[in-house]
């Protein structure tokens, strides 16, 4: 599961244009400067890198309700957990 965390941090970092300073679990999602395009790109990369499928509709914001990057990592870990 540590792999998911580092992979996700790397993906998010690439798209976080608004971020000043280090990216960590505590970084607020609102500080990342992620727009609708970036959400779609991040999900695609998560799917490609982790071999999972993220149930997601592009007209909904999957980041809604997520306060920190840690929330995002936990959500992806849940998706990747063996059923």
């Amino acid at each position: 599961m540590a792999d998911i965390e580092s992979a996700l941090l790397e993906i998010v970092k690439e798209h976080a244009v608004g971020l000043a300073g280090e990216l960590s679990r505590d970084t607020p999602v609102a500080d990342l400067g992620i727009d609708s395009f970036a959400v779609v790109e991040i999900i695609y990369e998560v799917e490609e890198k982790l071999g999972i499928e993220v149930p997601f509709n592009a007209n909904e914001n999957p980041l809604e309700g997520m306060k920190t990057v840690g929330d995002l990592i936990d959500a992806v870990k849940k998706l990747a957990a063996p059923k």
Partner: peptide
């Protein structure tokens, strides 16, 4: 044999 970029349509 891969999926296209997700923003291809746009």
């Amino acid at each position: 044999g891969r999926r296209p970029h997700p923003l291809s349509i746009l």
